[in-house]
Design a protein around this nucleic acid. Structure first.
Length: 891
RNA sequence: GCGCGCUUAGCUCAGUGGUAGAGCACAUCCUUCACACGGAUGGGGUCGCAGGUUCGAACCCUGCAGCGCGCACCA
C-alpha cells in the first residue's frame, strides 16, 4: 500500500480539482438542456473589492445551492459578475492617482481619468473573481458579466429612457443629501443616521419695529444663519400670534426677514420659533415653497461658507464656522444660551462625514410597479427567509420616496440626456425638466446621441450604481428589451442569496425593475444571510482590523475547511459571531474524513460488491440505515434552507456514527486473520456508505469529496462526483429496526462499561473480564465486539453468576454487567461513589413519584407519556435497589 | 416615538408543552498499528426578571429589564 500522508493537505488537492472542473466545463449552463433549469445570479461584488468573510458566507451558500441542484438533476446557471461601484471605485482610483502621481481627476480631465479607471479595473478587477474560484465557487465563468459591459450599459440607458418617457424620471431642483467629500448627491439609503452630541443655540431675533421685543430661536446650526429668510412659528401658538406678519432682524448679514406661521413648527420644541434656511434644510425648503420665500445658499459644495458679506466667516469650514458664528452672536449680545443636545446626524456611508442637505439640480425616479412589487412578497410569489424581513420590506414599500439617481461622478453610466446648446442656459435655470421639454425637442433622451451631435451637450452626471444593479437578474441574460434562450430557460431565477443590509438598496429595487421590464418577478426565494460579527459582537470592518483575511484562512485550513466551518456555525436568522476555531474544526473534520478513508485504503481489496445487506452484522445494517436517514434529513434540510443544521448532521454522521461507532466496531474485520467473508462485508459496507456520503458532502466540501471519491475508486476517470445524480434508492430496503436496536444496545453498553472502568480507576486496563447475566439471547454473537469496544479482555455470559458482595456493576441494555476486581477496588472510594449515585437516583425517584402521584397528570396527560413515566420510575427503583445492595455488601 | 429581533453551560448557539442539548473551552487519563487536526471519561445551567394559562412551561400569554437592529423625527 502506498504511503499516504497522515494529515490531509488541501492546498494542492483543491487547486487540482478546481482546474479539472473548469477543464471539464462542469459549471457551464446549457440553455437548450432538457433538464429543468435552476438559476442564481451572484450579488456582484465591487470590481475592485477583495474577498471578506461576508462574501465567503454568501457565496458558499450559493455554491451549495447550485451544487445540490446539479446533483438533483437540474440544469444549473450560477451567473457571476462584478459591479462597477461608482463612488467606491472612483474614490479608490483618485486616491491612487494622488498618492502615486500627485494628480487629480480634474487635472487629468474626464476622458483621461476614465481611461485610468478602466486600466485600474483591468489590472485589479479579477482579484475577487480569483478569490471566489479559490473558494470553489461553481459559477459559469463563461458568462461573467460586468455592469459596465457594452450591452449591460445599453440596458441601463434603455431603462432610463423608458422610464423617462413614462414620466417616472424627471429632473428637478430639490434638497438632496450632499456629500461634501465625494462632491456628489446621495440617495436617502446611503445616509447613515448617527446620534451625535451637539449644542442647541438659542438666538435673539429682534423685532425690526424698534420696540425692543424679540423672538428667541433655537438652532443647532448657527453657521447657516446667513441663509435665513424667515422665522416661523406655529399658527396655533398663542405666544407668538402677535408676531406673525411682522419682521425681525437677522443678526448677520443684517437684513429684515418676516415672521411667518406654518403648521410644521412644533410648539413644544425649543422656543417654538424656527429659523428658516431653505437652502440647507429639507423642511425649511418645503416651508419656503409654501410661502414663496427666497433661497439663499451660503455653503460651497465642499462644505465651506460662501458669504462674502461676512468676511470673518467666508471660506471657513462649516464646523469651524459654527464656533465663529456662535462667538459672533455672543459678541453682539444675541446669544441667549447654549444647551447640550444630542441629535442624529446623517453621515455619508462612504466618506464618513456628515452629509449636507443641499439644494441642487438632480434626476429623480418615481418607482415603477411599486404596488405589484409589494404584493409579490405579501402574497408569497416571492418568499423571504427569514420571513420577518417581509415586514421590513412592506414598510419600506409603503413609504417609498422618489429616488435621486444622478451622481456628480465620472465613473458610471452617464445620463443619456443631451441638451440643445442654444437652449442650455434656459434649461440650466429651469426648476424642473420632464416630458414637456422632450416633446418640444429641447432635450434628447435616448440610448444613442442625436445625429447632429455638435449642436448638443450631454448631461455631465452619471447614474447611481444601484440604478444599474437593480437590472442585474435580467440584464445579464439578454440584450436590452430583448429575449434570449438564457432568459427563457433561467428567468425568473430561483434563489437570491444576499445580506439584509441591502434589502432596500438592491432587493426591493430588483423586484420593481423585474416586474416593469420583464413582466415577471426576478427571483422566487430570497435568502438573507447573517451579518458576520467578531467575538465582541462588532461588525467586521477594515478600520477596526477585526476582519480576518479569508485567503489566509484558506491557506491555513483549506477552502473546504473554511466553507464547512462557517456553515456549521451559521444560524438561521440572527447575526453570526465569527470564531476562527470553527474554521479549524472544519479543517479537522476534513482530516477525520481523510483518515477514515485512509483506514479503508490500508485494508486494500478494491471495491467489493455488496453482499445481501440482510445477512450483514447489525453494525453494518445500522450504519447503512443511518446513511439513508442522513440522506432524508438532508432533503428536508435543503427544503427549509437550514444550512447550518445540514452541516451539523453531516458532521455528526461521519464523526459520531461512522468513525466512533461503526469503524471501531468493525476494526477486527480489517485485521489480519479476519475471515474473508467478514472482511468483504465490512469493505462493501464501508464503500456503500462512504461513496454516498461523499456525494452528500460534496456541495459543502466539494474538493475533498471529489478527491476521495476518485482516490477510493467510487467514480471512474473523467467522471465527477459533483455531476453525479443523487441516488433515489435506499441502501436498506427492509426493516432494520432489530439490527439497529442491537447495534445501539452494544454501543450504549460499551459506553457504560468504559464508564464503570473509569469509576473503578481501571480505565486503562485492557485485561479485565466483565461478567454478564440477565442478558438478551442475541448478545452471545456480539460479546466479542462489546468486549473490544469496552476495552476488556473478555465478556463472559454467565446466567447463573452470583456476584460476590460489593462487585461493581452496571445495568446495560446488554444485561447486568459485573466487573470483579479482586482487591483492586478501593472500598472507601467505591462507597463514596455508590452513596453519591444513590442520592442522585433518590432524587429522580422522588421526582417520578411526585409526577405520577399527581392526579392531574395521570388523568390528563396522554397515555403514552404516563406509561413512559411509569417505566422510568421502575428503572430508577430497580437501579436504586441494586446499588443499595452493593452498598450494603461493602459494609 | 413606531416596529423587529435577542436574552439557555465559561464561549458560540440548537431546542414549538412531557427527565435541559451540541460544539468549543475546562479537568483527568491515554503517544493501543486511520486520525494528538486523535481517543476515553468527567465536572458545569433554579433556560433575563415578575406574574398568568396548564396536571405540567425554556417553549404559550401579559408586564418589566438589558442588549442589538430598522424606520421616522430632531430647530
Amino acid at each position: 500500500m502506498s504511503e499516504l500522508p497522515k494529515a490531509y493537505e488541501p492546498r494542492a488537492v483543491e487547486e487540482k480539482w478546481y482546474a479539472a472542473w473548469i477543464e471539464g466545463r462542469c459549471f457551464e449552463a446549457d440553455p437548450s438542456s432538457a433538464k429543468p433549469g435552476y438559476s442564481i445570479v451572484i450579488p456582484p461584488p465591487n470590481v475592485t473589492g477583495i474577498l471578506h468573510l461576508g462574501h465567503v458566507l454568501n457565496n458558499t451558500l450559493q455554491d451549495i445551492l447550485a451544487r445540490r441542484a446539479r446533483q438533483s438533476g437540474k440544469e444549473v446557471l450560477w451567473l457571476p459578475g462584478t459591479d462597477h461601484a461608482g463612488i467606491a471605485t472612483q474614490a479608490k482610483v483618485e486616491r491612487v492617482l494622488r498618492e502615486s502621481e500627485g494628480t487629480t481627476r480634474h487635472a487629468l480631465g474626464r476622458e483621461e481619468f476614465l481611461k485610468r479607471v478602466w486600466e485600474f479595473k483591468d489590472t485589479h478587477g479579477d482579484i475577487i473573481i480569483r478569490q471566489l474560484k479559490r473558494l470553489g465557487c461553481s459559477c459559469d465563468w463563461s458568462r461573467e458579466r460586468f455592469t459596465m459591459d457594452e450591452s449591460y450599459s445599453r440596458w441601463v440607458s434603455h431603462v432610463f429612457v423608458e422610464l423617462f418617457k413614462e414620466g417616472l424620471i424627471y429632473r428637478g431642483r430639490r434638497i438632496v443629501n450632499w456629500c461634501p467629500v465625494s462632491l456628489t448627491a446621495l440617495s436617502d439609503e446611503e445616509v447613515i443616521m448617527t446620534p451625535r452630541k451637539s449644542k442647541l443655540y438659542f438666538v435673539r431675533y429682534e423685532l425690526a419695529d424698534g420696540s425692543g421685543r424679540h423672538l428667541a430661536v433655537s438652532t443647532t446650526r448657527p453657521e447657516t444663519l446667513m441663509g435665513d429668510v424667515a422665522v416661523a412659528v406655529n399658527p396655533k401658538d398663542p405666544r407668538y400670534a402677535e408676531f406673525v406678519g411682522l419682521t425681525v432682524r437677522r443678526p448677520f448679514p443684517a437684513a429684515e426677514i418676516p415672521v411667518i406661521a406654518d403648521e410644521h413648527v412644533d410648539m413644544e420644541f425649543g422656543t417654538g420659533a424656527l429659523k428658516i434656511t431653505p437652502a440647507h434644510d429639507k423642511a425649511d425648503f418645503e416651508i419656503s415653497l409654501r410661502h414663496g420665500l427666497e433661497i439663499i445658499d451660503v455653503l460651497t459644495p465642499d462644505g465651506r461658507i460662501d458669504c462674502p458679506q461676512c468676511p470673518d466667516l467666508h471660506g471657513l469650514d462649516r464646523f469651524e464656522a459654527r464656533k465663529v458664528a456662535a462667538a459672533k452672536l455672543e459678541e453682539l449680545g444675541l446669544l441667549i444660551k447654549v444647551e447640550d443636545y444630542e441629535n442624529s446626524v446623517g453621515y455619508s456611508e462612504r466618506a464618513q462625514v456628515p452629509v449636507e442637505p443641499r439644494i441642487s439640480m438632480q434626476w429623480f425616479l418615481r418607482y415603477p410597479c411599486a404596488g405589484e412589487a409589494a404584493d409579490a412578497v405579501a402574497d408569497g410569489r416571492i418568499t423571504f427567509r427569514p420571513a420577518r424581513w417581509a415586514k421590513t420590506y412592506a414598510h419600506w414599500m409603503e413609504h417609498l420616496q422618489d429616488w435621486c439617481i444622478s451622481r456628480q461622478l465620472w465613473w458610471g453610466h452617464r445620463i443619456p440626456v443631451w441638451y440643445r446648446k442654444d437652449k442650455l442656459d434656459a434649461l440650466k435655470q429651469a426648476a424642473a425638466l420632464g416630458m414637456e421639454d422632450f416633446t418640444r425637442g429641447d432635450i434628447h433622451v435616448a440610448i444613442d446621441p442625436p445625429d447632429d451631435s455638435d449642436d448638443w451637450v450631454r448631461d455631465d452626471d452619471v447614474m447611481d450604481t444601484w440604478f444599474s444593479s437593480w437590472l442585474w437578474p435580467f440584464a445579464t441574460m439578454a440584450e436590452p428589451g430583448g429575449n434570449s434562450a438564457l432568459l427563457r430557460k433561467f428567468y425568473p431565477t430561483d434563489d437570491l442569496v444576499t445580506g439584509p443590509d441591502i434589502l432596500f438598496f438592491w432587493v426591493a429595487r430588483m423586484i420593481m425593475a423585474g416586474l416593469r421590464f420583464t413582466g415577471d418577478i426576478p427571483f422566487r426565494n430570497v435568502f438573507f444571510t447573517s451579518i458576520i460579527r467578531d467575538l465582541q459582537g462588532r461588525k467586521m470592518s477594515k478600520s477596526l482590523g477585526n476582519s480576518p483575511d479569508p485567503v489566509e484562512l484558506m491557506d491555513r485550513y483549506g477552502a473546504d475547511g473554511l466553507r464547512f466551518g462557517l456553515m456549521r456555525i451559521a444560524p438561521v436568522g440572527s447575526d453570526l459571531r465569527f470564531d476562527e476555531h470553527s474554521v479549524e474544526e472544519g479543517r479537522n473534520f476534513a482530516n477525520k474524513l481523510y483518515n477514515a478513508c485512509r483506514l479503508r485504503q490500508m485494508a486494500g481489496g478494491g471495491c467489493v460488491p455488496p453482499a445481501d445487506p440482510q445477512d450483514l452484522p447489525p453494525y453494518h445494517i445500522d450504519i447503512l440505515a443511518k446513511l439513508d436517514a442522513l440522506a432524508e434529513d438532508l432533503v428536508a434540510g435543503f427544503a427549509g434552507y437550514r444550512f447550518g443544521e445540514i452541516a451539523q448532521r453531516l458532521h455528526e454522521f461521519l464523526w459520531s456514527e461512522f468513525c466512533d461507532k461503526f469503524l471501531e466496531a468493525v476494526k477486527p474485520d480489517l485485521r489480519d486473520g479476519a475471515s474473508e467473508a467478514a472482511r468483504n462485508a465490512t469493505l462493501a459496507t464501508f464503500d456503500a456508505v462512504m461513496s454516498r456520503y461523499l456525494q452528500l458532502l460534496s456541495p459543502y466540501m466539494p474538493h475533498i469529496a471529489e478527491e476521495l471519491s476518485a482516490r477510493m475508486g467510487y467514480i471512474s476517470d473523467g467522471e465527477f462526483v459533483m455531476n453525479r445524480r443523487l441516488p433515489e434508492t435506499r441502501l436498506v430496503d427492509f426493516d432494520a429496526d432489530v439490527a439497529q436496536a442491537k447495534a445501539a444496545a452494544v454501543y450504549e453498553s460499551a459506553g457504560r462499561l468504559r464508564n464503570l472502568k473509569t469509576e473503578c480507576n481501571v480505565a486503562t486496563r485492557r485485561d479485565l473480564r466483565f461478567i454478564v447475566r440477565n442478558h438478551p439471547a442475541w448478545i452471545d454473537a456480539e460479546s466479542r465486539v462489546l468486549a473490544m469496544l469496552a476495552g476488556a479482555a473478555t465478556i463472559s455470559l454467565e446466567p447463573d453468576y452470583d456476584p460476590p458482595k460489593g462487585t461493581p456493576a452496571a445495568v446495560t441494555p446488554c444485561g447486568e454487567c459485573y466487573l470483579p476486581l479482586e482487591g483492586l477496588v478501593d472500598v472507601a472510594a467505591e462507597r463514596a461513589r455508590l452513596e453519591k449515585e444513590i442520592a442522585k437516583i433518590r432524587g429522580e425517584v422522588a421526582r417520578c413519584e411526585a409526577k405520577l402521584g399527581n392526579p392531574g397528570f395521570v388523568d390528563r396527560a396522554p397515555a403514552d407519556v404516563v406509561d413512559q413515566e411509569k417505566a422510568r420510575l421502575a428503572d430508577w427503583i430497580g437501579k436504586l435497589d441494586r446499588l443499595q445492595a452493593m452498598l450494603d455488601a461493602l459494609s
